[in-house]
Amino acid sequence: MKFNPGQLVVTRGVNDLISDNEEFAKHVFLSLKRHLAGDWGDLCDEDRVTNELALQQGERLFSVYKKEGVPTIWVITEWDRSVTTVLFPEEY
């Protein structure tokens, strides 16, 4: 892990789909592993650089993960590393 994620939480929508869809549950698990390793997923180069600076300066971290056949998810770690949230873009 590149940083402490704090408390790991998922929104109600993500939780409901995890319960109903094993493929989506795997996508969430693997995406969290990637986020914690500093693999920011499907971000543009500029946003990747922003995340790398945020790691050093204690700012919010943001990742996007897309996979064919399941909904896109966002993973956000707060600036103080107290909480990491998995959510759908429309839940932001």
Results as ranks from 00 to 15, higher is better:
Met1Ile: 02
Met1Val: 08
Lys2Tyr: 13
Phe3Ile: 03
Phe3Glu: 00
Pro5Tyr: 11
Pro5Leu: 03
Gly6Trp: 05
Gln7Leu: 14
Gln7Glu: 14
Val9Ser: 08
Val10Leu: 08
Val10Lys: 06
Val10Arg: 09
Thr11Trp: 11
Thr11Cys: 11
Arg12Ser: 11
Gly13Tyr: 06
Gly13Ser: 14
Val14Trp: 04
Asn15Arg: 15
Asn15Tyr: 15
Asp16Cys: 00
Leu17Val: 02
Leu17Ser: 02
Leu17Glu: 12
Ile18Asn: 00
Ser19Met: 08
Asp20Tyr: 02
Asp20Phe: 03
Asn21Met: 01
Glu22Lys: 11
Glu22Phe: 03
Glu22His: 02
Glu22Trp: 01
Phe24Arg: 02
Phe24Ala: 01
Ala25Tyr: 02
Ala25Gly: 00
Lys26Arg: 13
Lys26Met: 05
Lys26Pro: 00
His27Thr: 04
Phe29Glu: 12
Leu30His: 15
Leu30Phe: 15
Ser31Ala: 12
Leu32Cys: 01
Leu32Arg: 01
Lys33Met: 08
Lys33Val: 07
Arg34His: 09
Arg34Gln: 10
His35Asn: 10
Leu36Cys: 03
Asp39Lys: 11
Trp40Val: 04
Trp40Arg: 04
Gly41Glu: 13
Gly41Pro: 06
Asp42Gln: 10
Leu43Asp: 09
Asp45Gly: 00
Asp45Gln: 08
Glu46Asn: 05
Glu46Asp: 13
Asp47Pro: 03
Asp47Trp: 12
Asp47Phe: 13
Arg48Tyr: 08
Thr50Val: 08
Asn51Met: 11
Glu52Phe: 15
Glu52Ile: 09
Glu52Val: 07
Leu53Tyr: 13
Leu53Glu: 13
Leu53Ser: 02
Ala54Met: 09
Leu55Glu: 15
Gln56Asn: 08
Gln56Pro: 00
Gln57Tyr: 14
Gln57Gly: 03
Gly58Gln: 04
Glu59Arg: 15
Glu59Tyr: 15
Leu61Ala: 13
Leu61Thr: 07
Ser63Thr: 05
Ser63Ala: 13
Tyr65Phe: 15
Tyr65Arg: 01
Tyr65His: 04
Lys66Gly: 00
Lys67Ala: 12
Lys67Met: 12
Gly69Ser: 06
Gly69Ala: 08
Val70Trp: 07
Val70His: 07
Pro71Tyr: 07
Thr72His: 00
Thr72Lys: 06
Ile73Tyr: 07
Trp74Glu: 13
Trp74Met: 06
Trp74Gly: 02
Trp74Pro: 01
Val75Asn: 10
Ile76Trp: 10
Ile76Gln: 04
Thr77Ile: 03
Glu78Ile: 04
Trp79Lys: 08
Trp79Tyr: 11
Trp79His: 12
Arg81Ile: 12
Ser82Cys: 01
Val83Glu: 12
Val83Ala: 06
Thr84Val: 03
Thr84Cys: 05
Thr85His: 03
Val86Tyr: 05
Val86Ala: 11
Leu87Ala: 10
Leu87Ile: 03
Phe88Pro: 01
Phe88Lys: 10
Phe88Cys: 04
Pro89Ala: 10
Pro89Thr: 11
Glu90Leu: 00
Glu91Phe: 05
Tyr92Ser: 08
Tyr92Arg: 14
